[in-house]
Design a protein around this nucleic acid. Structure first.
Lengths: 154, 154
DNA sequence: CCCTAATAGTTGTAGATGCAACCGGATGTG
DNA sequence: CACATCCGGTTGCATCTACAACTATTAGGG
């Protein structure tokens, strides 16, 4: 559950200049990197990142299947977006939808062989961008430091 | 100009485990924070973040006006998205479009009084989230360290 | 100058997202 | 067990975004 940010008290914010600068850089850096991944995938005629995220969650899960709401919790997708994204994945035979025995409302989404194969074709593209735009520009210490700072924001 | 990520050599990526973990956390943290800002704005019946970004760029610019492509370069918006976003802002009288004297193709976008007023109403909401979800969770040193790491990724 | 190529911006159309309303099936309380 | 409520998921509709094609203007050679 996310913190309820809709009830914050709105006083005139007194933020340090440096905070705003760093925040802006964080947003810009992240969007730029994501954008590079997306462009690389498109150039390789592969589906968008959202597909990768969902398929990866499924492949990580025991049995290669998850309830839809579990995928949503992991990927931060809303339920209606997920519903339609799974439609698209299903249409491409990358996942199957099965009725759920324990809960008559829901369904289990399972990744197919075609789905895992797609994952394997996407990873080199995704990973190459990560390697060259992210890992290679930072030291191992940088990455650890970054991890520790980000942890405080979770 | 962005690095051309569409011609990378795709070998089997050999990324350190830690790199992938940190990358995942970076993406998740940033999207969560942006999402919190968006929800706070919506709860306050204010327009989305994209409007803020454009209006802020304009207010920062000398004379409160910029060419459309200049806004695009700052905000990472594509030209067609920007074209329509400026349409919407114009419809709400937050900006004006003027023909550009030096370049007959383009136009100058200028922020209006209503536009700056909107900025002033949005900032407390935006800033409050930043203060409570970002600044208050990090030390000044953390923020500086974060800045320096992110700089290497630009 | 003229012709080509590049640039700024718009637009038609298709696809994706957001919102609210909705449909069961599950859960809890009296 | 009856009822209201909650929860997982879907869907209609409006809005927004992506892509490609287009107009109009500027810039660069020969």
């Amino acid at each position: 559950m996310q913190p309820d940010v809709t009830r914050l008290v709105f006083m005139k914010p007194r933020l340090r200049e440096q905070t705003v600068t760093t925040w802006a850089r964080l947003v810009r850096t992240e969007t730029t990197l994501i954008d590079q991944v997306q462009r690389a995938l498109k150039a390789a005629k592969l589906p968008p990142l959202g597909w990768y995220d969902v398929l990866l969650e499924l492949r990580r899960a025991p049995g290669g299947e998850l309830r839809q709401y579990e995928i949503g919790a992991q990927t931060l997708l809303t339920k209606y977006n997920l519903s339609r994204l799974v439609d698209r994945l299903q249409r491409e035979a990358l996942v199957e939808r099965h009725a759920c025995a324990e809960d008559g409302r829901g369904n289990l989404v399972r990744i197919t062989t075609a789905g895992t194969e797609l994952l394997q074709r996407m990873w080199p593209v995704y990973g190459a961008v990560l390697e060259q735009q992210f890992e290679s520009r930072l030291s191992a210490d940088d990455i650890l430091a970054l991890e520790n700072i980000l942890k405080k924001l979770g």
